[in-house]
Design a binder for these strands. Structure first.
Length: 553
RNA sequence: UGCCUGAUAGUAUAAGGGUAGUACGACAGAUUUUGGUUCUGUUUGUCUUGGUUCGAAUCCAGGUCAGGCAACCA
């Protein structure tokens, strides 16, 4: 197993732990706070945690870190559960930090009894002030000297709702002079008279992250508790709690979170985009959320593959969004049904064709021999893409131009004979002739053309709406760029074409099918679809070497 | 200014004292009834200065740069 691919540092730790007999099996957890939707950065963590358990035959819990009732909601719980499942993972147990509030409370009393915690009546400002600075030790105040009995009584009174929010906290007694600021008598419990999404009004004191997370890990016998780099300084406190409480020794390991170009990854910023209307919601197809990407047409396979490729390490990183796009193209190329859709129609008349319909066959997917075929009506009056014709073509323009020949995909080779214009000089129609013995699959014409165009029969075309997306920001790293990240929003990140025209087969395709609109990109049906006019989101463009070539000029 | 992390091609990620490799990108070519796909080739890298060693990306010391830490957020 370890021969095929090199191990990341966490896999190395696990293999060592297993080899040394420190553990006989492993348990991991994915611990989201239900205060927002999951994004691609969470996907990295999900794939890591669940992937590790799968690889080493262990289990993964889904645990909601719901210790702050004022920001957390059931809506988020539902979306998180849904997203993890959609990504293809199944948790062994669904747990909530709030499941452990009673145990956590007992642990707190234990610390008080041991003289390891005390109730402090200081205000948040006073506590901050007494904390010192990175270069200056902090000072304990007079409340630190209270007796065990007094602390116990005060803490029980806190629990019983005798004090208002912010009036008192429970603090660990560790070291006010520690070079690690986290250890300067950190707050363990605070008073919040707030309704909790699961425990209701049972509690008015809630544990802080540091007093809930590690203990929850321990209660669940999590062997490897994997979190991101910013929790490194918390590890000392994580271990302190476990040691003082004498409970199962879970261990914390940190890896670098995912950052990606042309987007933002913090829940706070994503929430702002939603609340201030820069996007239509958490699941806007331009959002880096799992739900947004799902709606856009990303597949779970491609996201998992992406997470595999980016690797896991401890250095900060900024992943090129191009890698994500590569991953989704790679998968969609294998599975997407090919269909022809014209975005900006230009009418052409095949003057050499008789009236009537010739039904042609087109493979559903040239990459998949078992994908079958669909029928395509070919008639005298067709629509092609406006950009596939140029009256005065540049060099290496392998498309249609006066006197030039191209193949119509799945049909015949045609030549442009005449350009028809209106009074203003706009091109309204092309007159073309076809080469009768050049039909796809039975071409005996001997003519070689460089270009192949997609097209639809004018009378059979069905109207659809197509939504084209671009990156949400125009700066590589908007979160760290000059000024506010909102200044870097891409103003045209969404383009809606409400009059695209599709070949008729599209009307009968399943709603959840993945499509490649030939030469135009990968598309996926949107939930906004009404029966009269289906809506399709562009998941990603095709690689376009011609556009690159043309841009060089 | 204290402590904690980290530094390998453009971007990521391997090599664990013995030939710096892989993926994406870029570039060039071949194939192609999608300017798609596929295939081939090319290109670019060990932060710095010393030390240990026959030999250092790897071990040691100093430096530089980047990130994190002073929420009753997680």
């Amino acid at each position: 197993m370890s021969e095929e691919k090199s191990l990341n540092f966490i896999e190395e730790i696990i293999e060592r732990d297993l080899a040394e007999g420190k553990h006989t099996s492993i348990t991991t957890r994915f611990p989201p706070e239900p205060n927002g939707y999951l994004h691609i950065g969470h996907a990295k963590s999900i794939c890591l945690n669940f992937g590790l358990a799968i690889k080493y035959g262990g289990e993964t819990n889904l645990r909601f870190d719901d210790t702050n009732p004022v920001t957390e909601e059931t809506e988020y719980v539902e979306s998180i559960r849904n997203d993890v499942k959609w990504l293809g993972f199944q948790w062994a147990r669904e747990r909530y930090a709030s499941d452990y509030f009673d145990t956590l409370y007992t642990y707190a009393e234990q610390l008080i009894q041991q003289g390891d915690a005390y109730v402090d009546d200081s205000s948040p400002e006073e506590i901050a002030e007494q904390k010192g600075t990175p270069t200056q030790a902090g000072q304990r105040n007079r409340f630190a000297d209270r007796s065990v009995e007094e602390n116990l009584q005060l803490f029980r009174d806190m629990r019983d709702g005798k004090y208002p929010d912010g009036s008192r906290v429970l603090r660990a007694r560790i070291d006010m002079a520690s070079p690690n600021m986290i250890l300067r008598d950190p707050v363990l419990y605070r008073i919040k008279h707030a309704h909790h999404h699961r425990t209701g009004d049972k509690w008015c004191i809630y544990p802080m992250y540091d007093f809930a997370h590690g203990q929850s890990d321990s209660i669940e016998h999590i062997t490897h508790s994997i979190c991101t780099l910013e929790f490194i300084p918390h590890r000392d406190l994580y271990n302190w709690c476990i040691e003082k409480l004498g409970i199962f020794p879970s261990r914390q390991y940190e890896f670098a979170r995912l950052n990606m170009t042309y987007t933002v990854m913090s829940k706070r910023k994503l929430l702002q985009l939603v609340q201030e209307g820069f996007v239509t919601g958490w699941d806007d197809p331009r959002m880096p959320t799992i739900s947004g990407m799902r709606r856009r047409g990303y597949t779970p396979e491609s996201i998992r593959n992406f997470c595999e490729r980016i690797g896991v390490a401890r250095r900060e990183n900024l992943i090129d969004v191009g890698l994500l796009e590569f991953c989704v193209r790679e998968h969609l190329n294998q599975v997407a049904l090919r269909r022809m859709v014209v975005f900006h129609p230009l009418r052409i008349v095949i003057t050499t064709m008789q009236e009537g319909i010739e039904w042609l066959e087109g493979e559903n997917n040239p990459e998949d021999a078992n994908s079958g075929t669909r029928s395509i009506p070919f008639t005298r009056e067709l629509l092609i893409e406006q950009e596939d014709f140029m009256e005065v073509p540049p060099k290496k323009f392998f498309r249609l131009a006066p006197g030039q020949m191209v193949r119509l995909k799945h049909a015949y080779i045609i030549r442009c004979d005449e350009v028809i214009k209106d009074d203003q000089g706009n091109i309204t129609e092309l007159r073309c002739s076809h080469i009768p013995n050049s039909k796809s699959g039975e071409d005996t014409s001997g003519i070689n053309v460089k270009g192949t165009l997609h097209w639809v029969s004018q009378t059979h075309a069905i109207p659809i709406e197509v939504r084209l997306y671009d990156r949400l920001f125009r700066t590589e790293d908007p979160a760290n760029a000059e000024g506010n990240f909102l200044d870097h929003i891409h103003p045209d990140s969404q383009q809606i074409l409400s009059n695209a025209l599709a070949e008729p087969a599209l009307a009968n395709d399943p709603a959840d099918a993945r499509f490649q609109f030939i030469r135009m990109g990968y598309f996926y049906g949107d939930c906004d679809t009404k029966t009269d006019k289906p809506v399709f989101n562009r998941t990603v463009t095709l690689k376009d070497t011609w556009a690159k070539e043309a841009a060089k000029k």
